[in-house]
């Protein structure tokens, strides 16, 4: 059984510095992980400025959690993905019910194609948001971030076998939602 890798020495050292309120470590945390967090969030929300704001929120949340000693993960990136996922879910919860609405505006071919593409994005994101947390994350990481099952397992702190089963259930649930069932 494949288990998630323990935290690297580098990450452990960074975490120690973060817990000691080392300002340079806080800056390093942001510089090292913010681009990946932004990419994850952007693919979930599809808007740059919103993704930037949510990314900033993720790091503020991380800082607050570190101060309270609430860091329980074995990998910083996995933890940040989890925080990012939570922030996205929270965002969509407040944004309801504007998800998965089709675009009915008549348009030219190019504009129509772009509109359909945007509609597809919204549909997928809308359906994704209705999955369970684990299902959302496995779909987002496997098909949004292009992570392998092994990488996803490490980020979700699960075994690779668990990810195989999870992605099966996630894809089945997503299909049902996209078909309107």
């Amino acid at each position: 059984m494949t288990r998630a890798h323990p935290m690297s020495t580098d990450e452990a050292a960074l975490l120690r510095r973060l817990r000691a309120n080392d300002l340079a470590a806080v800056a390093e945390l942001h510089d090292r992980y913010a681009p990946a967090v932004f990419a994850y969030v952007y693919r979930r929300v599809g808007e740059q400025h919103l993704a930037e704001d949510l990314t900033a929120d993720v790091f503020l949340k991380a800082l607050e959690a570190l101060r309270r000693g609430r860091f329980a993960h074995s990998a910083l990136m996995a933890w940040l993905y989890r925080l990012a996922h939570n922030r996205v879910v929270d965002h969509y919860r407040k944004q309801r019910p504007q998800v998965t609405l089709p675009d009915d505006h008549p348009a030219t071919d190019d504009v129509q194609a772009a509109t359909q593409e945007r509609a597809l994005h919204r549909s997928v994101r809308g359906a994704l948001n209705r999955l369970t947390d684990d299902q959302q994350q496995v779909i987002a990481l496997r098909f949004g971030e292009g992570k392998t099952a092994a990488e996803t397992a490490r980020l979700l702190q699960k075994t690779e076998e668990a990810v195989w089963a999870l992605q099966h259930r996630s894809l089945a649930a997503l299909r049902r939602l996209l078909e309107g069932r």
Partner: peptide, 28 residues
């Protein structure tokens, strides 16, 4: 469905160049 998910999520690609500086300033 996996193809749709890849298209739907990765369709936001290419990623824009984010302006992460304001967020960094807030964090610091």
């Amino acid at each position: 469905t996996a193809d749709l998910a890849s298209s739907g999520l990765a369709a936001a690609m290419p990623l824009p160049t984010p302006d992460l500086a304001p967020g960094r300033a807030r964090l610091m």
